[in-house]
């Protein structure tokens, strides 16, 4: 389907480009948000990515899927604006070495809505690349190989980032939930 619309756009039917905007805007926004952690910055990054994709569509050779190629542009744009704004989060490595999933008892403490709130908060508190790795692997459900293609990271780099991201999330959730416990009791 993507190939058909690519051909249409290249033949001069620019309205056919709306298909790509409609089809991929949510995933692209999700990825940009995980890096930039701000809805306006994420929107701007995705918009810029669409313009770049339109400009470079003639160079797209179809070796990978259009979505892979496009999400790579989105991620590059998001990382670029994150760097420009000096947003890359530095977290001192005070994370607990190994926290078992069982020790994050999120279900026992808070309701479903609160859960979503705390998870979003924890995602915002972890470094951009780690949040991006979690989003790609657990939310968008890409394989490590696909993540490698989209981000340009190596396989081992992806695995290390995922490991660190999990650690960071456990740490953040523990901190947030221990505060919640103190408030409750």
């Amino acid at each position: 389907m993507d190939e058909l619309y690519i051909k249409k756009v290249l033949d001069g039917d620019i309205d056919a480009f709306r298909y790509f905007v409609h089809q991929y805007k949510d995933k692209a926004y999700n990825l940009a948000f995980s890096v930039l952690k701000n809805e306006f910055d994420a929107r701007d990054a995705v918009q810029e990515a669409y313009i770049i994709a339109f400009r470079k569509l003639g160079k797209f050779r179809g070796r990978s899927k259009f979505s892979t190629w496009f999400f790579r542009i989105v991620i590059n744009e998001a990382l670029k604006s994150s760097k420009k704004a000096g947003k890359e989060k530095y977290i001192a490595d005070t994370r607990t070495e190994s926290v078992d999933p069982g020790h994050v008892e999120i279900n026992d403490i808070v309701s479903r809505d609160q859960q979503k709130y705390y998870i979003d908060l924890a995602m915002q508190n972890i470094p951009s690349k780690e949040a991006l790795a979690l989003t790609l692997f657990y939310i968008e459900e890409y394989s490590v190989e696909e993540i490698r293609e989209i981000t340009g990271w190596t396989e081992s780099n992806t695995k290390v980032l995922l490991h660190r991201a999990r650690k960071s999330m456990y740490h953040e959730l523990n901190v947030l939930l221990s505060t919640e416990k103190k408030t409750l009791y």
Partner: peptide, 19 residues
Amino acid sequence: LLSDSSREMPFSDFEDEVM
């Protein structure tokens, strides 16, 4: 944990702006 964390573009005029 992250099953509900997927986000959607919150700006309804996004498609028109991009086009």
